[in-house]
Design a protein around this nucleic acid. Sequence first.
DNA 1: CAGTGGTCTAGACCACACT
DNA 2: GTGTGGTCTAGACCACTGC
Lengths: 259, 259
Amino acid sequence: MASTLPPAESGGAPPDSATPAFSPLYQQIKGLILQSLEAGEWKPGEAIPSEMDLAARFRVSQGTVRKAIDELAAGNLLVRRQGKGTFVNTHAEQQAQYRFLKLMPDSGDRASEGPSERTILECRRVRATAELAKPLALRSGDALVQVRRVLSFGGVPTILEDLWLPGGAFKGLTAEQMSQYRGATYAMFEVSFGVRMLRAEEKIRAIAADAQQAQLLALAPGAPLLSVERVAYTYNDVPMELRRGLYRTDTHHYRNDLS
Amino acid sequence: MASTLPPAESGGAPPDSATPAFSPLYQQIKGLILQSLEAGEWKPGEAIPSEMDLAARFRVSQGTVRKAIDELAAGNLLVRRQGKGTFVNTHAEQQAQYRFLKLMPDSGDRASEGPSERTILECRRVRATAELAKPLALRSGDALVQVRRVLSFGGVPTILEDLWLPGGAFKGLTAEQMSQYRGATYAMFEVSFGVRMLRAEEKIRAIAADAQQAQLLALAPGAPLLSVERVAYTYNDVPMELRRGLYRTDTHHYRNDLS
DNA sequence: CAGTGGTCTAGACCACACT
DNA sequence: GTGTGGTCTAGACCACTGC
């Protein structure tokens, strides 16, 4: 047991609150690792200390550290590699390239389709409307960066996307930056702005393309499109991106696994 | 170590295959529990033996059984309840009622919307076409049961759904049965046919409603709809249901969490 | 070879639910 | 109180990676 880590509710005096608030030791360790992660003690892609080292640091058994790391790995914050170590996950890897993109070509996997391209149509500073501010936990009028782009697969424009990013954290984002890092926008966010996207929520609807949307996706006006509204979060569930994608689903589909 | 459970690859002779095929003990235990589950040794909703009992049965430590159960619980096959035991998961619980339905009302949670109703439009035996047979791992011409129904929330028809079920396993399914078990079709499948749906895959597209679809959902023809094509699987990844839902998304949305 | 994560064990104790 | 799952420990050994 860690002398510097009293087990939250151990002493003789009962908690003054009605909630027991019992927290297992491994959860506290998880919190401490999370803090170090958030503070940037270990950067995305780097290895964190070995389980034995962490156990020594926190004055805890290896098994307890292990359970804490297990949960962080289950949440995709860390990645375990047997024989090598435990690493801070990153969007900058071939494997995690399309971690959040669930659109798949109808005919097989992504490898079988042509190369992907991206065209930045727009990248400018705007002011948040009430509708934009709310999901980003900002206030109307706050500064945002808006990006509009089209993603094409095998030469076919397939996704029309608008991104809204908090102006503070993404000050200085340019269209050039968005064009680079092919396929890995979130990897660029990690490197250039120190923003790590950890999870996201999507709301999906079917809509009819308006004239402009249809033109940009080379479709007839009124064609059905999948509207995917995403809010992406960093540490502490702080929203850092609002994104609205319009997906063509005549040749692709959004794939989801349920269990 | 279990004397009746040689650790897969222990003896002196190397495996004749190129693959090492090392399998940890807890994975083997997981497999044995899975077999008992599939054989119906414990029914959905029932408790399985305690960890100590299973450890004794398999001649293994409690920790090893624990890890096996952990994985089964992570896959939603089992449910742990502290102080009570570990239970076979079932669709017949308030909590798991809509486990596979990701459509949510735009305004808050499901509780806030009106009561749900279901109207069975059709329930008859058909022959599998090639398109229906393939995802169900059957052959063209095999017997199927087809069900068509409309789900309404707060009096508004919201989902038009077709289900195709293997004729063998679902022999004798009637419209009456489909009407009962309000909200819990999969619970009825468990009780009446012994079919447990464990996981599913969905392919989502945006389409335009045709005349018939529009009429059944009280919409204008051509209105955009979410097409949700689901294949649900039971043990051993055997497909047991093909389902195609058309969702109105003017008042609802399909919600998905990414991580 | 040494170092890492992965498995397995045995035992102690804690939190929770039912009786 | 008894029995359940949940936590924590300490130690041994295994599998994988790279030097």
